[in-house]
Design a protein around this nucleic acid. Structure first.
Length: 794
RNA sequence: GAACCCGUAGGCUAAUGGUAGACCCUCUCGCUUACACCGAGAUGACCCAAGUUCGAUUCUUGGCGGGUUCACCA
């Protein structure tokens, strides 16, 4: 360990050495045999194919505050690092990096490229975490509890498959053919939670239709003219006088000349467009509901590849947008286009690929979720939300869940669905083994079920002659991620430990994935255990760039934490993160200046320590002077405040108080006041009074180090080490009851008085060391008279 | 369209029914035995309107502005 005397300023070189040691040591290892209370943190696994950004850096710092505080409180902290290596983001990165299409390359080859990408992905992220001083239980990848885990490891995928099999057997997972969100770019079904809406410009076309019975012309507006062929009904609002005479009549569609019924329906709005609407199969979700309600048979004219199919007649083979252009051309030629208008309208966009969503009917696997809405709402009452208001995000999402969760995806690099088919039989992979049906036969012990009745008929071994066709689809990444806490607590692999540690203590995560990660995890936890899977959940906001905009790769405003680690260091970054604000209440604007400014606080702490350690701490506690008693009472009060706040994940208010204490109270005032007494060169003070000062200096410093340790562990550990104490094992002090507000007030008066004297001397143009006459010490400060006189030379 | 959150100095924030406190920036002065990556000091702010109140930045209502989420858009 470094000697304080050798350190001029706190710097990144010192940090590098400390964090390297931490990373390699077993200092924060988790002991599963512990008798202590277990505190487990279900950390969000970052995607490893892109390096972590400031958002990750700051939020993991907060998690580390929590972990370090809990260790001091004597709890056994399980704080693993997971690496997300599954799903669409990995596939998309692979497509981009190697410039290959999964559909052309084929599954075998494409999967290999995915693995190649993952293997080449740097460990830069892990290194950043280490350098931030994040005290993960381990930085090693092995089988022990708390180690680094990969979401695509056979172990993790085994658990995913096991839960799938169980849910399938229970009838909670079923296959159905429904119209669903289709991403034409990625060629897969997506869940509602993976859809965003964006304001996109599109053209609103007023098109002439004919009415068969009356020969009159009607005008219908649409943004999706390419779907005219799929129109099932033309509607108007029942209140709309203009069209009442059309009830029950037949509209003739342009170009396709199909006969379509006209009816009144409240879905049509009088003031939208011409008041007449063509209801197409799957222009959007409301169309789907409409078709169901009216018992119309949907006609899907868009294929899986995003091209129009045979149902679109002349448009067959064209991409949706091309088809739109083509049909408008045709309509124009026939003189049926009345007018075109540019409108901005909200369009469903794939969160992953940014492609416009189409609605296509496909057979997919669904996990039942609608049936459990009430149960989920009930159990989340027992989860503590920090901040409380974030529960609303979850509540309102649960309210809006209207269809079951489509969990199958037509992609490659994810957990395979562990099923095989043979005639009217279905084979389920045995639980506890990882299988890849798309390239292997079912294990002999796989259970065989009747497709229709789902009755167990035997095992694959009983059907030696059958040819089994493996399922090719994979599972939604969220189907994996939503069991992260079960994986962390060794569900199905270490029953004893699971029993002891479930539910997990804390789920820390961003607000933007409440409807996915948080919701799905709670749903899955409930289906497995019937209980809420966390005690607490801490929902954080975002780190914004210097201009207050959300950081994202696409806008190119990402700040690399490595840069800050190299220039300002982890401790400055951490101290800034704690003092900047409450991340659970609002966004942080990332300010290099402010981060850099916190280095000053670190040096201040270093210098105070250097000063204090110039003096020996008295072996026995001396009789304390009234000033010293006041200071010790004050920091006892601060201890209680920190404890209370840390307990509810508030590190911001304590950090501000502690910084204020460090600068204003300890450094600027207390040390200045007691310098004379500490040195006692002129022997104006008794030996006991001097000892009281030395004792108090050490006491305050030690306590300050403890309170600051969760936030800035490197510098506090370094100083404590030099003082011969170990912050990690010394534990959290029991806070004593004090009159905090009163002490605070008295200290304020004291510091005000000091300021006044310093200001007066400055105005008189005299040095601070020169004596000053005609200054009266206020009554309430009389008990500190001796220190005040010595300090100010009154 | 609805719900929720939020509007405080040039920037970012805190507290508060009665003098609004830090930090960064700017300016002035200063080398005081831990500290010039410092110290001392200065300038500078409660979105608007109405209401409740002796008194509102704080509470209520409305407006304006920003953010988030949900819904809808033929």
């Amino acid at each position: 360990m470094l000697k304080l005397s050798e350190i001029k300023n706190w710097n990144v070189e010192i940090e590098k050495e400390i964090t390297r040691n931490w990373k390699e040591s077993e200092l924060f290892a988790f002991n599963p045999k512990t008798k202590k209370k277990i505190y487990s943190i279900d950390t969000p696994p970052p995607y490893i194919n892109s390096p972590i950004h400031m958002g990750h850096a700051v939020t993991y710092c907060f998690m580390d505050f929590f972990a370090r505080y809990r260790r001091m409180k004597g709890e056994e902290v399980l704080f693993p690092l997971g690496l997300d290596r599954n799903g669409l983001p990995i596939e998309m990165a692979t497509e981009k990096k190697f410039k290959i299409s999964p559909f052309k390359a084929g599954r075998e080859k494409f999967t290999e490229y995915c693995k190649k990408l993952l293997n080449e992905a740097s460990t830069e992220s892990i290194d950043s975490f280490a350098r931030l001083g994040i005290s993960f239980s381990s930085y090693k990848e092995d089988d022990t509890i708390g180690s680094v885990y990969n979401t695509d490891s056979p172990e993790y995928r085994t658990l995913t498959q096991s839960t799938f099999i169980e849910l399938y057997k229970k009838g909670l997972i079923y296959e159905a053919s429904r119209i669903n969100n289709w991403d034409p770019k990625l060629r897969t079904t997506l869940a509602d939670s993976e859809i965003n809406y964006e304001e996109i410009q599109s053209t609103f076309n007023d098109i002439k239709w004919a009415v068969k019975e009356t020969d009159e012309e009607i005008v219908i507006g649409t943004t999706r003219p390419e779907l005219i062929a799929t129109c099932g009904m033309v509607i108007y609002n029942p209140e709309d006088e203009r069209y009442k005479h059309l009830e029950g009549k037949t509209a003739i569609s342009p170009i396709f000349n199909e006969e379509i019924l006209i009816k009144a329906h409240p879905l049509a709005q009088i003031d939208k467009g011409t008041g007449l609407a063509m209801m197409c199969s799957a222009g959007d979700l409301s169309d789907i509901q409409f078709f169901r309600e009216m018992k119309l048979t949907p006609r899907i004219a868009i294929g899986q590849d995003g091209r129009m199919n045979e149902k679109a007649g002349v448009l067959e083979g064209l991409k949706v947008k091309e088809a739109r252009g083509k049909i408008i051309e045709l309509i124009k030629e026939k003189g049926l286009l009345i007018k075109q208008e540019q409108i901005i309208h909200r369009t469903p966009i794939s969160e992953r690929s940014k492609a416009e969503i189409e609605f296509i009917e496909m057979p997919e696997f669904y996990l039942k979720q609608r049936d459990f809405k009430r149960d989920i709402k009930k159990i989340i009452k027992d989860v503590n939300f920090y901040p409380r208001s974030s529960k609303k995000i979850l509540d309102s999402w649960i309210d809006s869940v209207s269809i079951d969760w489509p969990i199958s995806r037509r992609r490659y690099y994810a957990t395979p669905i562990p099923l095989w088919y043979s005639e009217n039989l279905i084979a389920l992979a045995p639980q506890g083994t990882y299988t890849e049906p798309w390239k292997q036969n079912p294990p002999k012990e796989s259970e065989v079920l009747d497709v229709k009745t789902k009755k167990v008929l035997g095992t694959v071994a009983d059907y030696p002659k059958n040819k089994w066709i493996g399922e090719e689809r994979v599972l939604d990444t969220w189907f994996d991620s939503s069991i992260s806490e079960l994986n962390m607590l060794k569900y199905k692999s270490d029953d004893e430990f699971f029993k002891k540690s479930y539910p997990a203590t804390l789920r820390p995560q961003g607000k933007e994935i409440v409807r996915t990660w948080l919701y799905y995890t709670i749903l899955r936890g409930f289906l497995e255990t019937g209980k809420p899977c966390f005690k607490d959940t801490w929902i954080h906001q975002h780190i914004l760039d210097g201009n207050g905009r959300k950081m994202s790769k696409s806008s190119g405003n990402v700040i690399d934490p490595q840069l800050i680690l190299n220039e300002d260091g982890a401790e400055a970054l951490r101290f800034w993160a704690a003092t900047e604000g409450d991340l659970s209440k609002g966004d942080f604007v990332c300010s290099r200046e402010k981060i850099r400014a916190e280095r000053k606080s670190l040096n201040k702490l270093l210098n105070i320590s250097r000063f204090v350690m110039m003096f020996e701490k008295p072996k026995t506690k001396p009789k304390l002077t009234s000033l010293d008693t006041l200071m010790i009472n004050y920091i006892e009060g601060l201890t209680a405040l920190c404890d209370k706040s840390y307990e509810v994940y508030d590190f911001n208010h304590p950090a501000q108080e502690l910084r204020n204490f460090l600068w204003e109270i300890f450094a600027s005032n207390y040390i200045e006041l007691v310098k004379n007494r500490t040195y006692n060169e002129e022997e104006k003070f008794t030996e006991e009074e001097s000892a009281s000062a030395r004792y108090t200096l050490h006491f305050l410093l030690e306590r300050l180090l403890i309170l600051l340790y969760p936030v800035i562990p490197q510098i506090t550990t370094t100083i404590a080490c030099e003082k011969g104490t170990d912050l990690l094992t010394m534990g959290w002090p029991k806070a004593k009851k004090t009159k905090f507000k009163e002490d605070e007030g008295l200290i304020k008066r004291l510091t005000d008085f000091n300021s006044m004297v310093w200001k007066a001397k400055k105005e008189l143009g005299i040095s601070l060391r020169e004596p000053l006459k005609d200054i009266e010490i206020p009554k309430e400060l009389q008990s500190f008279k001796k220190d005040l006189k010595a300090c100010h030379k009154i």
